[in-house]
């Protein structure tokens, strides 16, 4: 009985296979074959994709992303460097200007000190010369007075003698001194 039904089923399948308008999709006798080869194909594609293709493409995409990021970072870096260089240049410029001003001020101060010194020295020299001159003038003045006194005494003595008097040296000296004072 069992073999009978099996035969019948087999016959029906054969009939479905042979007849033109039947649907080959419903021919169950080919299912085993299709499923067997499908399993192999799916496993093959899965292995190809998961072992080789997908990691490789992921790596390529990551590498590209990395390259782009690196390039952007490098550009950012260079830009920062340019700004830094500009700052350094400006700073150097300002430093140089300040240095120049400092040197000018220093030089001016130095010159001032030299000038002050020279003026002081000159003043001193002038003062010394003045003092010397005053002393000389004083000496000359004293010398002149003494000479006048002598001349006056001599003249007075000569006058007294010429007039026939007897010259008293002491009296003459006193008289001359009185006259000189007044």
């Amino acid at each position: 009985m069992a073999s009978n039904t099996q035969d019948a089923a087999h016959g029906a399948a054969e009939a479905a296979h042979g007849s033109a308008p039947g649907m080959p999709q419903l021919d169950f006798s080919t299912f085993g074959n299709q499923i067997f080869w499908l399993a192999i194909a799916l496993v093959a594609i899965y292995l190809i994709l998961s072992r080789v293709a997908l990691p490789r493409i992921a790596a390529v995409l990551a590498e590209r992303q990395g390259t782009i990021t690196n390039d952007l970072a490098a550009a950012e870096d260079l830009k920062a460097k340019a700004v830094e260089a500009e700052d350094a240049y400006n700073k150097a410029l300002a430093d140089a200007r300040a240095e120049a001003q400092r040197i000018a001020a220093e030089t001016r101060a130095e010159i001032q000190v030299g000038l002050d010194e020279a003026i002081a020295k000159a003043d001193e020299q002038i003062a010394a010369k003045t003092a010397e001159s005053e002393k000389a003038i004083g000496e000359i003045k004293a010398g002149a007075l003494e000479s006048v006194k002598l001349v006056a005494a001599d003249t007075a003595e000569a006058l007294v003698t010429a007039l026939g008097g007897k010259a008293d040296e002491k009296a003459i000296a006193t008289a001359v001194a009185d006259r000189m004072k007044g």
Partner: peptide
Amino acid sequence: VTLWLALAVVCVFLLMVVGS
């Protein structure tokens, strides 16, 4: 079925592995 499944596998291989 075997032939055309194999061709599908080959096409996947060509595009995804050889292509990249």
